[in-house]
Amino acid sequence: MPALLDVIGLTKHFPSPSGAVRAVDGVDLQIHRAHTYGLVGESGCGKSTLIRTIQRLLEPTSGQIIYKGQDIAAYKRAQLRTLRKEMAMVFQDPHMSLNPRMTVFDILARPLQIHGIARGKDALTLRIVHLLQKLGMQSEHLVRFPHELSGGQKQRIGVARALAVEPDIIFLDEPTSALDVSVQTKILKLLENIRKEWELTYFYISHDINLVRVVAEHMGVMYLGKIVEVGRTEDILRDPHHPYTVGLLQAVPEPDPDKPLGELQLGGEVPSPVNPPPGCNFHPRCPHAWDVCSQMEPELRMLSAEWSVACHRYGDDARAAPSR
């Protein structure tokens, strides 16, 4: 079965006085229908830019975005409107992503009206109340303004707005990072139930590996504009291969006093995407780097059917290099 979304060599560069900011720098990824994909990376790695570019909220610099067999990277402006109905997004901070001057009814009516899904107050109300109930809220919330809602309730409205257009795929940009843990669990469970019921496809981005662990079947790890490892979440977390993935996993503290953080592999800081290091982006911080790493960029190579890593240690040239 072809992937719902097949991104090929996608790049997004931003001009800056000191040279192009290579925010997304040649990303390949596939997402299958009714699956959940989680993309992990630290701040500035380009994950937010990536999902905005995939949705054509930002203009790609180059590359293809094959969605349902069509390259949407080549879509003209007029064609984008159909895309807006198929792809929806839930934003990180519900306090900032809801218009403070609109009631819950107005916020949710907007997408329905724009896409002609429902017309007239009665039809809109019916649909919106149904949506609210789906998210564990009541019709009394219709007349509320965002400031009258708690953080968790606001994020439910954010989710309801994404669901309103009945999309095929929802992009979730750290949907729970602004929420307290007790609220986070509920939102995650709600999202999962809705996904199963509506057979939706989710694309999460997060800096929190433990979040991706519980929600996503497949995951990718992004570093400085590139995907360095991709595969089944279970496999990667059990046996990470890319040195960056290894370092990232080691840096996550466990909420267990008997499991303190061990020796850290990940020293230093993420370099600037304006002038990324030559060869493998990660080589200046990599404990295993050898000569080839600073000269040649590693390609994303398949370890198995569902597992790929961009690291010279797992490439053909590994034989010629010193043992690890």
Binding site: S150, V181, V183, T185, K189, L211, V214, D256
Partner: peptide, 24 residues
């Protein structure tokens, strides 16, 4: 007790996470 059980750790299952009804 609930707070400790709602933290995302190495539990792999969403269903194991505790929920606290209502809001602060």
């Amino acid at each position: 007790h609930k707070l400790l059980n709602s933290v995302l750790g190495v539990q792999t299952n969403l269903d194991d996470l505790a929920e606290i009804p209502g809001t602060v």
